[in-house]
Every structure is written in structure tokens, then in C-alpha cells.
Amino acid sequence: MNAQPATAMSLGLAGCEVCGLVSRPLAGQPPHCPRCGERLHFRRPASIERCWALVIAALILYLPANLLPVLTTYTPLGSQTDTIMQGVVELWSPTSWPLAIVVFVASITIPLGKLIALAYLLITVQRGSPKSSRQRVRLYRMVKFIGRWSMLDVFVDTFVVALVQLKPLMWMAPGPGVMFFAGVVVVTMVAVNCFDPRLIWDLPQKECHA
């Protein structure tokens, strides 16, 4: 790899994150992209701090999301509550086990994996580690691409509740866990967008924020 690759920032230029135009931010007033009007930043503002805050918030939400019930089933005989994990176990049968795995991966593995990956990226960037940048940027792209799929369980619960409304025979209602789970999904998606992958390539002494 080159010792001094020419980044846009090192030449005083900024690539617009919305339209891709490379332009030179003018000193003085807050710079805007001349083509689309988006605020120009050399790097996303307070990227590391915001991303850490959101990762920690998501981690806190992750606990009630998995411990509280997401579905309650009412029958004349009584009621039964299910957490996400219990839902996966119930879905496990000789015919539907592949779907059980999909739900498990989307609801439990992906959110947790995403938080671990973001924490790893944040720590290596803060240390100014120059190692395996290419793998790390690939990890970032994967996290951004796969992260949305953790919405799966929110949709499952929504449509199960909408359909099973056979009062007084049997009906279902969402539990408080759904709200926390939806929170995890939204907060982690915003966290990924706050992280600036260009920081992976910046050497510590060259760091500067616009």
C-alpha cells in the first residue's frame, strides 16, 4: 500500500455523502454541497462519540427486548406469554426448523453481532490501528447491509396479532418486549449510519473533524 495515499481530506476537498460531488468547502460559513445542498463534512461530525452512545443505548435495550414477552396468547383456560427465544423454540418442528433458524439469526444473532462489530470498529479506530483496514471496511459494509433484517420479528408479531383475534376462543396481544426490540433495531441502524468508515483509513495524526 502507498505510504501517502491522496485522500480528498488531505487535499482540502470533501466528497458529498448524498450526491458524490467532490468540492472544496469554503472557509467561514458552514459549507454546503454546491450541487445538492447537503452539509459538507470531511468526516461525519462526532462520529465516534455518537456511535458509542447509540451502541450503549442499544445494548441496554437489548436486555428487555429479549427478556420481556413479545406475544401473549389468551384462551378461555388462561394466558401464555412468549419471549423472542420461546417463539423460536415453538417454531422448531420437523418441517419449519429452517424458519426457526432464520428468526433466531435475525432477532438474536444479528443485533448482538452488529453491536460487537461496531464496538470492534470503534475501538480499532480510536487506537489508530492501521491493520487490516480492508477487512474492517468489509465488516462495516456487511453490518450495514444485514442489519435491517432484524426487523423480522417485529413484522412477525404484528401480523400474528392482527390475525389471531378470535375472541373469546383465542386471541393474541403484543407484549412490552416488542417495543424494546423495535428500539434496538432503530437505534442500531442509526448507530451504523453515524459511524464514518473513512475513519478506518485515517492515521491518528491526520485526524481532523469539520
Binding site: 417463539g87 415453538e90 417454531l91 418442528s93 419449519s96 424458519l99 432464520v102 428468526v103 450495514k144 435491517r148 433484517w149 426487523m151 423480522l152 420479528d153 417485529v154 413484522f155 412477525v156 404484528t158 401480523f159 400474528v160 390475525l163 389471531v164 378470535l166 383465542m170 441502524m189
Partner: peptide, 24 residues
Amino acid sequence: REWSMIEIMLLGVLVALIKIAELA
């Protein structure tokens, strides 16, 4: 664009369908 989740919803509907198929 990343908040448009039709494909995820469709998978969710499929899972819901299998879940309910045990009951009715």
C-alpha cells in the same frame, strides 16, 4: 431507501403464517 422493508415484511408474513398454521 434502507427504511423501505417490503422484503423483510414478506418474510415476516411467511413466518407468521407458519406460526399460526399450528393453531388454525
